[in-house]
């Protein structure tokens, strides 16, 4: 049963073709990585899937609710981490008691309870990224979209976050886009490789079917 179906999605920005007939689907509960070079159109693709950008052609079918973690985190600097995580619950008029409870549970799942009372600009990149993830997960989405979640983090935060993301496997459908294959090889069930802009699907494979060494050889050409 598919959670997301992307069919021949095509998108240009003033004559510049960015997405070229992209098609793939994601099974429910699957962890899918989309890998493509910088500027290939990954963020654009996620925005189309999230529904904030209309494709020029093609269609996207999403079965379930979506949570988004943008590349820049986009935490509100005038709100503490806790209030940032709480934002979606507040917009959905969830009672305050329940909001607090959910935020605390999600923060402890990701190991960021001690940062809830700090401002986002006071914490490390890793904690900020986890806060943005918590903000999405606390709404209990069926599908999570992650835009370059590991990019820009130091090695230990990267390992720490990878561990947290591993805990999501099987629980929720995840689409993760990244420019770095190594980052996701151990996380993803399946990988969609994109070409440089305009992005087309170059290949799709299961990570179980290919060894890391073969993959490196393949990538090197």
């Amino acid at each position: 049963m598919e959670a997301v179906i992307v069919e021949k999605v095509t998108k240009s920005f003033d004559e510049k073709l960015v997405l070229d007939r992209i098609s793939f689907s994601v099974e429910r509960g699957e962890f899918l990585a989309i890998v493509g070079p910088n500027g290939s159109g990954k963020t654009t693709l996620l925005r189309v899937i999230a529904g904030v950008l209309k494709p020029d052609f093609g269609r996207v079918e999403v079965r379930g609710s979506i949570g988004v973690v943008p590349q820049e985190n986009l935490l509100l600097p005038w709100k503490k981490i806790g209030s940032n995580i709480e934002l979606g619950l507040k917009f959905r008029r969830v009672p305050e008691e329940e909001r607090r409870d959910k935020v605390r549970k999600m923060a402890s799942f990701l190991g960021i309870e001690e940062y809830l009372d700090l401002y986002p600009w006071k914490v490390s990149g890793g904690i900020a990224r986890k806060s943005a993830i918590a903000r999405a997960l606390v709404l209990d989405p069926d599908i999570l979209l992650l835009d370059e979640p590991l990019t820009g983090l130091d090695i230990s935060s990267r390992e720490n976050l990878t561990e947290s993301l591993t805990k999501l496997r099987g629980k929720i459908t995840v689409i993760l886009v990244t420019h770095s294959m190594e980052e996701v090889f151990t996380l993803a069930d399946r990988v969609v490789m994109l070409t440089p802009r305009p992005a087309r699907v170059a290949s799709v494979f299961r990570t179980g079917e290919i060894s890391e060494r073969d993959l490196k050889d393949f990538l090197m050409g």
């Binding site: 904030v52 820049e72 986009l74 979606g88 959905r92």
Partner: peptide, 13 residues
Amino acid sequence: DEKLLDLTFLLGA
């Protein structure tokens, strides 16, 4: 930031 408004829209604002 347009992206910020997209995000708050997705969060149900």
